[in-house]
Amino acid sequence: MDYAFIKKMKYLINSSHEGDYWDFKQAWHTENERLLHDILCFANTVHNENRRCR
C-alpha cells in the first residue's frame, strides 16, 4: 500500500479546495447527468503541462 499517496489524498480531501488536477465536491451527485457533465468538463480542461497520473 502506498502510504504517501493515501496521505496526500487525505490532505486534498480535508483541504476542501480544487486544483488543476482534481475537482472537490461537497456531496455526491444525485443525478447521473450532472456527474457525467462534471466528468466531461474536467476531462476536457486544458492544462499547461501534460502530466501522467502516478
Rank of each mutant, 00 (worst) to 15 (best):
I6R: 07
E18Q: 12
A27L: 07
E18S: 15
E31K: 10
D23L: 13
I6E: 04
D2H: 09
R34N: 10
C41T: 07
L35S: 10
N32T: 09
E49S: 06
N32D: 07
D2R: 12
H29R: 10
N50W: 14
I39K: 02
K7W: 05
T30Y: 11
G19M: 01
I39Q: 06
H17Y: 02
W22H: 04
E31T: 02
R52F: 10
D23F: 12
M9E: 02
W22G: 00
I13C: 07
K25N: 03
K25Q: 12
T45A: 13
V46Q: 04
N32V: 08
F5I: 04
C41W: 05
E49W: 08
F24S: 03
V46R: 04
A27K: 14
E31R: 12
N50F: 13
D2E: 06
E31P: 02
D2S: 06
V46C: 04
K8Q: 05
S16V: 15
I13H: 15
W22M: 01
L40V: 14
Y21S: 01
A43R: 06
L12G: 00
N48C: 07
V46A: 04
F42A: 07
E31S: 08
E33F: 14
Y3M: 03
C53T: 03
V46Y: 12
S16F: 01
D38Y: 06
W28C: 14
M9C: 09
S16L: 13
M1S: 09
C41L: 06
R51A: 05
I13Q: 11
I13L: 11
F24A: 05
K10L: 15
W22I: 00
A4E: 05
H17K: 15
M1I: 09
G19Y: 01
H47W: 04
A4Y: 04
N48A: 09
D2F: 14
N50P: 02
F24Y: 13
A43Y: 02
H17C: 07
R34Q: 11
A27R: 14
N14P: 01
Y11K: 10
I39M: 11
I39F: 15
L35V: 00
L35T: 01
I39P: 01
F24R: 05
H47F: 06
R51K: 09
K25P: 00
N32R: 11
D20Q: 10
K8N: 04
G19F: 01
W22L: 01
E33K: 15
D20Y: 05
E33D: 14
H37G: 06
M1T: 08
C53E: 03
N32A: 06
H37R: 09
E33Y: 15
S15I: 07
L40P: 07
A4I: 03
I6F: 13
K25T: 00
T30I: 13
H29W: 13
K10R: 10
M1R: 08
N14K: 14
L12Q: 01
L36A: 11
M1F: 13
W28M: 15
W22A: 00
L36C: 08
D20S: 10
L35W: 15
R34M: 09
C41D: 04
G19S: 12
N44W: 08
T30D: 09
I13P: 02
M9S: 09
Y11Q: 08
S16C: 15
L36K: 10
L36T: 01
A4N: 03
F5C: 03
E31D: 11
